[in-house]
Each structure stands twice: as C-alpha cells, then as structure tokens.
Design a protein around this nucleic acid. Structure first.
Lengths: 245, 245
DNA sequence: AATACTTGACAGTGGGACTATGAAGATGTA
DNA sequence: TACATCTTCATAGTCCCACTGTCAAGTATT
C-alpha cells in the first residue's frame, strides 16, 4: 500500500521532470538520461513505467487534459445562454494555457503536429473539449442566436486557431513581450467573432440610417405631428433608438 | 558553367527529395540515407551542400517564401483599398498552402515550432509577409476604415491563426475530408472579421431600429406631413434605408 | 596534358534510445 | 527471524543514425 503511494510519486516525479525538460528544450533534444537525473531515478525505472520515450511524452498531458474536460463538463450546464457558454470554454482554455505554460508549450509545439498523438487518450480529451465548443455554436445556430448560414467549423477554427496562434507566438518569441494579457484580449476578440455571426435583433422590422441633417428633419416632422403631442417627447418604448458616438 | 548548372540541379534534386520525405514522414523520422537514395546522390554530397540535416531542412522553404513575398510586394501597391489588399494577402497564403501541400506541411508542422528556424532567411521572408498584413490593418485603422480601438495584432492573429489552424487540421486528419475548399471559406471568414472592426458608415448620424408596427406608424406620420407632400413619395436620397428580410 | 574541383564509396566515431541481466533493497508473510 | 516477491538500480551491450575523414574516380578549365 505504501508501495503504491511510493510508486505513484515516483511516476509523477518522472512526468514532472519530463514535462519541464520537454517544454524547455524539445522532445528531440531532451534525453532520457537527463530526465532520469532531474527526476532522481535511474533510466531503467523510466523504461519500466513508460515503455518508450514517446510513451512518456504522451502520458504527460493525459491527466490535465482530462481534468479540464471534466471540469468544464460539470460547469457548462449551469450557463444557459450559448454565448456565455462559449466564453466560458474559451476562458478555460486561456487559463489552462496561461497557468500551465509548460503544458501549453508541450501541446501546442510538440504534440499538435505528431500524428501518433492523435490516437492517444490525452488527445481524445482535447477533442471532446473542442467538440463541446462546436456543439455550442451549432446550438446557437439552431436556436436563432447565430445566423443560419454561419459555418460552425469555421467559427470554431477562428476561436481555437486565434488562441493557439497567440500562445504559440507567446512561447516562441520569448514570453515577456506582450502589453496586454490574453485575458484582456478575450472579450474584444469574442465580440468581433460573435457580432459577425449574430442574427440582427431587428430582423423583422426596418432599419433606418440617417445622417445628422435628415435626422433633424425627421425630428421636426415628428414634433409637429398632432398625433404625438399628448405623450412624452419620445415616441414609443418599443422603438429602439441607438446613438453612435 | 555546365558545371554550375549540374550543381544546381543536383542541389535542387536533394531539396525536392528532402521536402517530400520531411513532409510525408517528419524531420526526425527521415534519414539522410533515405533522402540520398531518393535524390540519386550519395550521402556525402548532401553533407557537401548542406552542412547538417537541419541546415537542409531550413534551406528548403527559403526560395518559395522569398518568391511569395516578392510577388505580393509587387502586386499589393496596385490595390488601393485596405480590405482588398488584406484579401489579396490572405488569398495568396491560401493559394500557397493549398498548391504546395508539402511546403505548408513543412512550415506549419515541422518548422513553426523550431526555435532555430526563427533565425533563418526563410523565416525572415515569412515575417515580412506577416508584417505587410499588419501594416494593412494599421493603415485601415489610421484612415478610418477600421475602428480606432481595434487591436491590429489581435486582428492579424485572427487572420493568420485561423488559416493556419485550418491547414494544420487539413494535414493532420488526412486531407480528404472537407466539403468546402479553403478558397470558398475565405470570403465568409473575412466578412466576419472585417464587419467586426469596420467603422459603422452612419457613425455621424442616427440609426433607428423599428419593428413592423412602429415602422408603419412612422410611415403614416410622414405621409400626413404637409412638408413632404410635394416631392415624390420617398423622403430624400441621402436617407439610406435598408430592409432586412 | 595538367590542374583544380566535384562526386562517390566506404570506413569510422559518437551519441542516444532501448534491451537484458543480475544484484541490492524494500515489502509482505509465515 | 527467515523466506518470497516486487521494485529499483547499475552495468553492459545492441542498434540506428548523424556526421567526419579519406581516397579514388570522374569532370571541367586552362
């Protein structure tokens, strides 16, 4: 029993050391002997737990990927509106990547382009997360939040691709430079994407774009109209008016 | 002289073979001996032209990256409006990636995450292309096409990140599956991004959103107004009216 | 014909992933 | 305490591959 615990910490020590070294150097440039020294175990022990160097690599992201998916699966049902759910998913991605830079470096720089990684338990968890984002978008299209001609796959690629691109460059050109945090960029980013696929609220009615001159003229007309003299100065609550600048 | 030509074709044969093999397997799994057989030269010859396997890798994308940049540099000045120029850049990316799948696999899957590649001539050319996209966005912000609070870096990351994401997945999960071509997705994609950062045309005036009922009431009022009896039934040409569905 | 340059064949060298083996501990059980 | 089992380690060795060095055989160039 104490045995099991010991074994577990040993295994974890190996994975911790490997994560650090794989992320800082790269999978290819890291050596098993280096990892064994860093973890304080012998090389043979590493080969006992993980058959090959690549198996070790694939084992590392498994736990964290799974936990992240399970957590979001638990939380998402409580968020009713589609956009809020999408925002929550994106936020959890950003937080995951930002607070585990080694993990994100590993996944985005080393694993993303590895064909064998795609047949891995860790990748399955990542795919499930990505799928829940796709589901949100589809639901938004189905329930009339988003335009029916929106391409759900494209939207998801925009959301994920942008975040991944930002983090890849964050990792590549040394992390320091970056005036804005990722978190601060999320809402402006989402607003651009979502505003581009939302169904316009006034779909059933009419939209008038007036320049200042014309607006004044219209105001005059309405003021002079006898039908409007009795109520307050504004016409009706159901006539939404939006000012720009 | 004939010597030089021979040398050049030999060098090119090596790079061609290497590109194919690096892209189909991967840099790590490819061997020099394999490339030498495919190119029909001896291993020693490869080491003569390219000092190391990695130097060979870095040499491959140099020409095509440079040519692409030079071509766009020649064409872009003829496109006056910023959005058209941005579309041209994106289109050239897509065409480059789509018609040279080996090249895009190499750049997106093998080189993107290689720190040493960033100090390479090929990467410098890629950076210049990316910079011209950034310049377009900044110009759009400066000349009032785009909103002044738009984040040029974010926009560029959206544009590049989405395309890269789409192509990475195109390469990874076997290229077949994909009902729409990348080209068909470009305009819907651009429209989402651009509509999210454009300055609204009627910024100086007023936008009225009316439901059907209110629109009819307004119509009544305008019809009854004596000031509007003489001209045609429509108010004024400068009053833009847009109908939705 | 003579010289210089290019290419190829081949034999190493070294590093690192992985295997095999047996000894030394650690743990559990009678 | 004695014995059996399981884990860890150290060591030695295999294999593969990038890379080096050498030399001989072409192939221009003069």
């Amino acid at each position: 029993m104490a045995d099991r615990v010991r074994a577990k910490t040993r295994k974890d020590r190996i994975m911790d050391a490997a994560l650090r070294i794989f992320a800082e150097k790269s999978f290819q440039e890291a050596t098993i002997s280096e990892i064994s020294k860093e973890a304080g175990v012998s090389e043979a022990t590493i080969y006992e737990y993980f058959g090959t160097k690549e198996d070790l690599l694939f084992a590392i992201p498994e736990k964290i990927s799974n936990d992240t998916y399970e957590e979001s699966k638990a939380v998402l049902p409580y968020i009713k509106d589609v956009e809020g759910r999408m925002r929550a998913i994106m936020l959890s991605y950003i937080q995951l990547y930002e607070s585990n830079p080694h993990y994100s470096a590993l996944v985005l720089l080393q694993l993303m382009s590895n064909k064998r990684f795609r047949q891995t338990a860790a990748h399955a968890a990542i795919r499930r997360s990505a799928h829940s984002l796709l589901d949100c978008i589809r639901e938004g299209i189905a329930n009339g939040t988003f335009r029916p001609d929106a391409d759900a796959y494209l939207i998801r690629s925009m959301l994920m691709g942008t975040i991944e691109h930002l983090f890849i460059h964050w990792h590549m050109q040394g992390m320091p430079r970056r005036d804005k945090t990722m978190m601060e960029m999320l809402d402006p980013f989402l607003e651009i994407v979502l505003s581009g696929i939302r169904v316009r609220k006034e779909q059933q009615g009419l939209t008038l774009h007036l320049n200042l001159e014309d607006a004044r003229a219209l105001g005059q007309i309405l003021q002079n109209d006898p039908a409007l003299q009795s109520p307050a100065q504004s016409a009706d609550a159901s006539c939404a008016t939006k000012e720009k600048n």
